[in-house]
Amino acid sequence: MATLEIRGLNKSFPHGREQRQVLRDIELTLHDNEFVSLVGTSGCGKSTLLSIAAGLEGFDSGQVLVDGEPIRGAGLDRGVVFQSYTLLPWLNARENIEFALKAAGRTRGECRRIADEHLQLVGLNDYAEAYPNELSGGMKQRVAIARALSYRPKILLMDEPFGALDAMTRHQMQELLTRIWEHHRLTVMFVTHDIEEAVYLSDRIVVMGRGPGHIKASFPVELGRPRHEEMATSTAFIALQRQVLKAIREDERQP
């Protein structure tokens, strides 16, 4: 079981001498094993919301609950994949995963075994000894995902993890992520700018609006699992994509 509940959340940042509200009355529940994408215009507070859920950022009022328990800072129950790959450059791919496992309290032997398993999972067993600097962007993000999965967090939080990748690599990564997710069944919060990506990956798409950031609409994705590439051309897929886009656009028209 792993649910993430955000209740009546408000958040403001100091702006000069005053406070500027960036999130207002956020109500959002991620059910067990649910894959939820968060979309919305730039600056509407998606990253801020994700950081708050991760426990990396504080908030003014409201509640963030994991399985009904209020969170106290960041923790191993919530894995985070950042847009910047955040692989530690002085450690090779395997050591980067082992680093997380060691922090999670695994023994040395376990670290090695689990790290290798997860490199295999993302198809990088041949690159176990490569340093981040020797890996392409897509490979780096695969290691980062392997690392975030390795210590079995109940919830995975991803902030535009594929935002810096080219279209081809991006497609491969989406394939990989659905495959892994359909296997492991985690609760996922996924921030993206790419609506097609959101539809392809998610069970539900949440649209955020600006001024200050709030939740505007929520669309269930009624496409079967497992997902495959051909679905992207189906009428249901395209219709949903349009609907989501329209919901986001409404926001842009306001000043």
């Binding site: 991760a54 426990g55 990396l56 960041a74 985070v80 950042f82 955040t86 530690l88 922090a103 210590y151």
Partner: peptide
């Protein structure tokens, strides 16, 4: 040192002294 590196340490449940020794120092070296 990228703030995300420190965020990573936090999400791995590391305490500040451990983050300093095992993330910040090697990264700044």
């Amino acid at each position: 040192v990228p703030p995300d590196f420190i965020g990573l340490g936090r999400t791995l449940g590391m305490r500040d002294p451990a983050i300093l020794l095992r993330i910040v120092l090697p990264s700044a070296l």
